[in-house]
Simulated scan of single mutants.
Amino acid sequence: MNIDAVRAWSRTVVHDYTARDTALYALAVGAVSDPLDARQLQLVDETDQVAVPSMAAVIASPGFWARDEKSMAIDAQRLVHGEQRIALERPLPAKGRVVGISRVSRIVDKGAGKGALITVCKTLQSENGDRYGHAWQLFFCRGDGGFSASGADDLVLDDAPLPPLAAAPEREADRHEHCAVRVDAALLYRLCGDNNRLHIDPQAAQHAGFPRPILHGLATYGFAAISVIRAFADGDAQRLLGLDARFSAPLYPGEDVEFRMWDEGCHVALEGRVAARSAVVISHARARLQ
């Protein structure tokens, strides 16, 4: 890994999107299960449309920058999207132009053979500079540890670390939401902009060690957002201000996932589990509501 190139990296993306794009995202993350529900329809009906807040993780994003920027010398084949966070200050518009300013905000060396952690912070704002909020992606670079002077745990940038994510409470969950993920969910979600072959090509998936194509992590993240909105916000998407989550295992199209949620007062803790194979696909997650 070329540390100088990584920490100097930034990219500004101007994203023009339509009501159709916003509706497509909503459908791709399972936001409409009842077409007679007025709150659900508001996510896809251009008449008085509302954007699903988790779309902040997707719009105005820099793409697969670790692969595209060859000068950074990151082992992109071994890079894993480990965590996703968003924090909104006001609702995203259902259509229009949003500017995303992304930069590497933190790098942690875990040591030779142990990989490195890279955090990318994206600021979302209007053309006029009015801020909507931030989104953070944490990447686990499995092939890039051992580059720092000490050889491990050397914090290369000056940004304060994000607070660590906490595991779900051990008590019984307060709410449960079940999602039946469509068998074509990955094919639908990739129309939102992520064309990674891992999610459509069986051979690419098998080469990566999976028996078949997996669902995009950010699609699973969107399903989690919808579950919180239904369980704790009475279907009002604009009440969701933040969502932090760890991607702990892949979710496959066609599976049923149960989101267990705990009311912790200042936030909602949640965990996504596929009972059929005892797999936790979303862990250490918390949502903030207004």
Rank of each mutant, 00 (worst) to 15 (best):
M72Q: 13
E69I: 08
E170Y: 03
I107Q: 08
W136N: 03
K95L: 02
R171M: 12
C141G: 05
I118M: 14
D159M: 03
G100R: 07
T123V: 15
W136Y: 05
E89W: 01
P164G: 05
K114H: 15
R131N: 04
G113S: 10
F139N: 06
G96S: 00
C179M: 13
K70H: 15
L157T: 03
R85Y: 03
P164Q: 09
D158A: 05
R171P: 07
V99H: 01
A76I: 09
L117T: 13
L191V: 07
T123N: 11
E83F: 06
R90D: 00
E69H: 10
P169G: 03
A73W: 09
A186E: 06
R103I: 12
S102K: 01
A76C: 07
L165Y: 03
A167V: 01
V181S: 10
S148C: 10
G145F: 02
A152S: 05
A166W: 04
K114A: 12
K70A: 15
L157W: 05
G63T: 06
G63V: 13
W136K: 03
K110N: 15
Q137F: 04
R171T: 13
Q84A: 06
D174Q: 08
D153L: 05
L124G: 01
A149P: 02
L165C: 02
I107M: 13
E170I: 06
H134S: 11
R67K: 15
I74F: 08
A166P: 01
W65D: 02
P163L: 08
